[in-house]
Simulated assay, not measured.
Amino acid sequence: MTHLVVLQHLEREGPARFAEEALRRGWAVTVCRPDRGEPMPRLGPDQALLVLGGPMGVADIGSPSFPWLEGEVALLRECLACERPVIGLCLGAQLLAFAAGGQVVPLMAGEPPVRAYEVGWGPVAWSRTQEQEPVLAGLDAALPALHWHGDRIQLPAAATLLGSTPLCAEQMFRIGHHAHGLQFHVEVTDAALEAWLDEDGDYVRMALGPDGVEQVRAGQGRWGEEGERQGRRLINNLLDRACALLGGYPLM
């Protein structure tokens, strides 16, 4: 049985739609919580890895507050070396890029550059065609996506850029044929978003102003349905790719 192993870093940021789609396929889904002291998983030949987001970052590697970050980077390097299917979301994408030799820096914008945050709904435009990238099959030219970050990935030489926004170029990338990173969020359900807004509202208001929470809710009302439709297609494309790499069926 194909198995999706998930690294989760805090309660509100779970696998959500990734788990729903994997379970619908008959996959097993196991969630590991290194933030709670659970050991890093030892991955078997039928297992793909999903690394979720969180408020910590690459700059926190080595901090006694997050001792497990070093273990995650080591696991990601192992997955890259053996070409295991990996999907990284937000923090997970940043750790994946770092494991491959990239860097993560504060997001800056404007002239002169000032600190910036990308929070709320915005379109991710693809920089590769569907013929070049099977994981983009069936998607529109741009995907309305939820953003929730203040860092920017400097991609390693081995990475191929797949999608960007005007504020942050490195939104989706591929390393080799087996590892994909998404800076944006396609996994978040309506209920989960409400939990994010409730628990992380100060961050949203810092990024967007006093009415930031209301702005994100308005964006959800406008873009949420289309974002879910295309987001689930992208999730299934990524799971298709993982299944093919694990021997479930031939690569496209």
Results as ranks from 00 to 15, higher is better:
residue 165 T to R: 00
residue 36 R to E: 14
residue 118 E to F: 06
residue 21 E to Q: 15
residue 203 Y to S: 13
residue 223 W to D: 06
residue 106 P to W: 04
residue 188 V to Q: 02
residue 48 A to H: 06
residue 92 G to E: 12
residue 43 L to K: 11
residue 105 V to L: 15
residue 75 L to N: 09
residue 252 M to D: 14
residue 100 A to M: 10
residue 41 P to N: 09
residue 27 W to G: 06
residue 149 H to P: 06
residue 185 H to G: 11
residue 247 G to F: 09
residue 126 W to Q: 11
residue 210 P to D: 15
residue 57 G to I: 00
residue 83 E to W: 00
residue 239 L to C: 07
residue 58 V to Y: 10
residue 225 E to K: 14
residue 149 H to E: 05
residue 74 A to K: 13
residue 229 R to M: 02
residue 72 E to M: 05
residue 99 A to Y: 03
residue 171 Q to A: 08
residue 187 E to R: 08
residue 159 A to F: 06
residue 200 D to W: 14
residue 28 A to L: 13
residue 112 P to E: 11
residue 243 C to R: 15
residue 144 P to H: 09
residue 88 G to W: 10
residue 67 P to K: 04
residue 137 A to C: 09
residue 7 L to E: 02
residue 231 G to C: 08
residue 3 H to N: 12
residue 37 G to P: 10
residue 238 L to K: 07
residue 83 E to N: 05
residue 230 Q to I: 01
residue 10 L to V: 14
residue 90 C to M: 06
residue 181 G to K: 01
residue 38 E to Y: 07
residue 109 A to I: 01
residue 184 F to S: 02
residue 64 P to E: 09
residue 215 Q to A: 13
residue 4 L to V: 03
residue 156 P to N: 11
residue 67 P to I: 10
residue 14 G to N: 05
residue 190 D to A: 15
residue 180 H to T: 15
residue 96 L to K: 09
residue 150 G to Q: 10
residue 133 E to G: 01
residue 80 L to H: 04
residue 190 D to W: 06
residue 114 V to D: 02
residue 186 V to R: 00
residue 85 P to W: 09
residue 147 H to S: 03
residue 49 L to V: 08
residue 239 L to I: 00
residue 217 R to W: 05
residue 78 E to P: 05
